[in-house]
Amino acid sequence: MQLPRPVHEVPTYTAHRAATPPDGDGRLEAACWRAAPRSPRFVDLVSGAPTALDTSAAILWDDEHLHVGFWLEQPQVTATLTERDAHIWLDDDVELFIAGADAYYELEVNAFNTVYEVLFVWDEAYGRADYDGVPALRRDHPQAAPFDGVGLSGHPRGPRTGFWGYDLPGLRTAVHVDGTINDDRVVDRGWRVEIAVPWAALGVLAEPDGRALPPRDGDEWRIALSRFNTRRASPDDSGGWAWSPHGVWDSHIPELFPRIRFSSEPPPGAAAV
């Protein structure tokens, strides 16, 4: 079985070292964010077509954290879920996927800053790493269950297990809403999301293939950023918008995640910001 899009079409992005620390307040107004290169405007996850509202993202890093920022245009900002690990995809949300050699991590955040986390491990690779040594990643954990993707049934790599009891240690998220949540009488500008992922917590992804934490200059990771909407702009709008389209309604295809290349240099022009 082939993947739904050619791997050579996957975009590459350079993530620069943050010249100054991010504020971590969700506003994305720190000098490092103003200097960071933005992604292209997100496109429809399935068709790759242009989207009705603007969405972009940027990635930075330092010795302690991977930093991710989302900018979302949205005239009506909505959210309903407030309990951690609720089914955030039922709200408007942003999603971050980080892939290692044998596993990948998923994070979802809504406008209330409610988070949902899962770690997925490819079954054929499970025995090659000490996943059993992490209690939340034991296959007999009550929140572990087989997972076959969302729209691409039968991934070429075979079956995988989702560990819904997994929480990434030290994760930080923040949301800033430019408007009023859940008030259709107000026209909002949109919302922003800021995420800080500790490198020290990503050993579960990095250790199987020995990648460095934090990354070395020139190292490359597969990282996907997307946005899902409860209100569709047109019948042709899938409701899922992404940095890199997958050609199918399924975010869980690590081979199609953008290639993020880490540079030890600050963003171009950072000193002038």
Rank of each mutant, 00 (worst) to 15 (best):
H155L: 07
A136K: 03
P156N: 05
L152F: 13
P142L: 03
V118C: 14
E117Q: 15
G158E: 00
A129F: 13
D91S: 07
P146V: 03
G165L: 03
A101M: 09
D123G: 07
R172Y: 05
E106C: 13
D93S: 14
Y105H: 13
V134G: 04
A125C: 12
E106D: 12
G170S: 03
I98K: 09
L96K: 07
G133T: 06
Q143H: 08
R138E: 01
P169L: 04
D93E: 11
L96Q: 07
W89N: 14
T82Y: 06
V150H: 06
R128L: 12
Y105N: 10
A145E: 13
V134K: 05
R157S: 10
T161Q: 04
L171Y: 00
G154A: 08
R157D: 12
I98Y: 09
F147R: 03
W164S: 00
V94E: 12
L171N: 01
H87W: 13
A144Y: 04
P135T: 02
E83W: 06
L90E: 15
E95I: 14
W122F: 13
R160V: 02
D148M: 01
Y131W: 15
A103D: 08
L168C: 06
T82E: 13
Y166S: 01
V115E: 15
G170Y: 03
A144G: 04
I98R: 07
D92M: 10
T173V: 02
G133N: 05
F120V: 11
R160Y: 00
I88T: 09
A86N: 09
G151I: 00
H155S: 03
P156E: 06
L90S: 15
Y104V: 12
T82K: 12
E108R: 15
D102Q: 14
E83Q: 15
L107W: 11
Y166N: 01
E106H: 11
D91C: 10
D130S: 12
Y116I: 02
L90Y: 13
F112R: 08
R128K: 13
